[in-house]
Design a protein around this nucleic acid. Structure first.
Lengths: 211, 211
DNA sequence: GCGTTAACATACCGGCCAGTATGTATGAAG
DNA sequence: CTTCATACATACTGGCCGGTATGTTAACGC
């Protein structure tokens, strides 16, 4: 079973803090959903871990689906932007930036995180086939992710670190998909070494996109 | 909502056909789980679509989990072997074989299938973090898949279609992950063209592995 | 102080779910 | 013709689930 980490409300029940309560619920919902998936997640567990009750939840969110939408906007999207897009924006060499950020990420994050996989990918895979609203919302985040990679490669072309004849959009699509796939392999396979070797091959192949 | 295809028992209630009943349940369970995920699947719906009752189900399977294990063995594994490994085994040029089978696959399968994604990947992503037995079972299939790709590249090295200095295991890990990721993108993105472009870039990059 | 509203807490509901207990019919063995 | 295990069907259960109806309390305007 999973280690049930909990983020209790710092000022439990004393003062009123609607924004804090809402953020607390989103954070615990993110963890619950990340660990169990959307269908497998339980509002009761989220509430128990948060130390608030259903009244609070349904005061801030109108449904479980609404809560998930908030998780996507307030937890998943910022995480994607911070962890994956900012390093790309700060560099003029997208190939190198991708290599750096993936290697540091693979090395830095906990086995627990690795086992749970990419939150965006998990939800996209679980819900895209079943619910069109979720699919659209999650795909918006994925699109922004891809757009960030694409922009980085376009800048790379301008600064001379990427060949002129490559299609940045297509490369972005591939890079995104490959990273999702590799993160999924890590989750499934336990054999991190083999996946890392696959990643290195990919990074090597990307080197072929230089002038 | 999904189109609820049903496979009724041909000899409904007349003659006894334990193997047929079992196969029927596995087939409908596969469809249900493929469409809704494991947590989101319902035994009652599977039974309704199969035209049998709970007595039959729990005669052949001891639990929902047991049914999923049967689905993995009797539906998912054969599909992987038939669709993805056999074309590789029949060719001496793995790069060309991969290009051919992916292109024909992307072109041949229905929008419905595309939207539901890869059954193996779906389950692996959903369950690997939650249930160790499922993770192991699904990873066994994935390992065989990877092993098939690896064997094809080793044969390619022997027959001269692949460079000697590439690591077949690492390439297999990458190819598998990338295909899973691309199939996941198709599922999420609706924009098939963009994903296909990403696939073409990948196949182009693989050409770089030739002597 | 006094109403009013936002921010919760408590208690409860119907529904679906996996699972079970029990009944029944089939078909082969003897 | 009887025996008996297999192969189901029927009916039911307890539990968890998302959701709701209602109560309560804190802060704030006046």
């Amino acid at each position: 079973m999973l280690t049930q980490e909990t983020t209790k409300h710092p000022t439990l029940g004393r003062t009123r803090d609607p924004e804090g309560t809402r953020a607390l619920l989103v954070e615990n919902a993110f963890r619950e959903i990340h660990a169990h998936g959307y269908a497998g997640s339980s509002l009761d567990r989220i509430l128990a871990n948060s130390g608030v009750t259903k009244g609070a939840l349904y005061h801030h969110f109108k449904s479980k689906a609404d809560l998930l939408h908030a998780v996507i906007d307030d937890a998943i999207r910022p995480m994607v932007m911070e962890r994956w897009l900012r390093p790309l924006e700060e560099s003029d060499d997208p190939i190198r930036a991708l290599a750096d950020s993936t290697r540091t990420f693979m090395g830095s994050c906990t086995p627990e995180e690795l086992r749970c996989g990419c939150p965006l990918n998990n939800l996209a895979q679980e819900l895209s086939g079943a619910d069109e609203d979720f699919r659209k919302h999650l795909n918006r985040v994925a699109d922004d992710w891809r757009a960030g990679i694409r922009a980085a490669f376009e800048r790379g072309q301008r600064t001379g670190s990427v060949r002129e004849d490559v299609d940045p959009a297509a490369v972005a699509s591939l890079v995104f998909a490959t990273f999702q796939g590799l993160s999924g392999s890590v989750k499934t396979s336990v054999d991190r070494k083999a996946v890392m070797a696959g990643l290195e091959v990919f990074l090597d192949l990307l080197e072929g996109l230089r002038p």
